[in-house]
Amino acid sequence: MGIQASLRREHRLAVAGFATAFVLAGGATTAALTLGGRNAFFRPAVHQPISFNHRKHVTELDIGCTTCHLTVETEAFSGLPDADLCAGCHLEPQGKSEEEKKLVEMLKKGTALAWKPLFRQPAHVFYSHRRHVIAAKLQCRVCHGAIADTIAPPVRVRRLVMDDCVSCHRRERVSTDCTVCHR
């Protein structure tokens, strides 16, 4: 066998090897992702104690955001509702949903509702809901997207980055000094 043929053969082997490895790795990934009969791509990013239906409350029943997120207009943080607040309406079932049954049971047992925040704010950033909602009259959906129109915890949470803050501050001619937000 000449040197050319030998090189060609080696190349073919290498390509075949790569292809095999690629297929195997792909198969393993798919298997891992669909483990337990569910595909990780379609699972919500954050698991909540109850699969809360925002659309039902906000759009259909016309309940304002501040009814449950109590401190939006008075504090820097927006606040997540506690069990007592839910119990104001849900001590008895209001509808027929399975999730509500789960909630009514939890309320009867007195389990605390540990809602997990969908939006995480880094420790070195200061953000005040009060200031943006009251003074700047910002609508919730500007940052939180169409959360009010979801029927279950969103699969993908909208990612807010510094560019979102800075571009809005520039547009509205608000200070972009570091000290305004960073701490």
Binding site: S128, R131, C181
Partner: peptide, 9 residues
């Protein structure tokens, strides 16, 4: 930041 937030509110 806190003081400005309070004053704005």
């Amino acid at each position: 930041q806190r003081a400005k937030d309070k004053a704005a509110a």
